[in-house]
Design a protein around this nucleic acid. Sequence first.
DNA 1: GCCAACGTTGGC
DNA 2: GCCAACGTTGGC
Length: 138
Amino acid sequence: MNYWLLKTEPSVYSYGDLERDQRTVWDGVGNNLALKHIRQVQHGDLAFIYHTGDVRALIGVAAVVSEPYADPRLSDAKRQVFDLVPQYALIQPVTLATIKALPEFQDFVLVKNARLSVMPVSPEQWQRLHELGLHKLG
DNA sequence: GCCAACGTTGGC
DNA sequence: GCCAACGTTGGC
């Protein structure tokens, strides 16, 4: 069981869209390193959904509900996709600024390689971010 | 809107 | 197989 961070531009497809759809095919990934990560995705894995653009924060948690498979809409077998269902929105979105301010996240992939769209999250990182996301401020 | 970082493409 | 040119992404 692995943890992931999936980036999405909310004006294209947001966590809210995932909740509305209740299930989606996570497609459109073309980057080689991101595709390598997709090949390691397993049924039952969990993922943070991160919004890019004006939001720049972890918004929700989703669960992988398929093994990776070739995008049926494309002829390139390397273009793997997987199915995703929403779990829950974070009570407190965890912003990029917050993550960048944490000393233990200086080497986090999101900080070091902002352009990677599918990245692994270690269990320790998951726990820490999850804790921040479920902590209600105020 | 700008631009740094990165990936891809194509000429050699 | 190198590398310059170009395109894209995404933070600022």
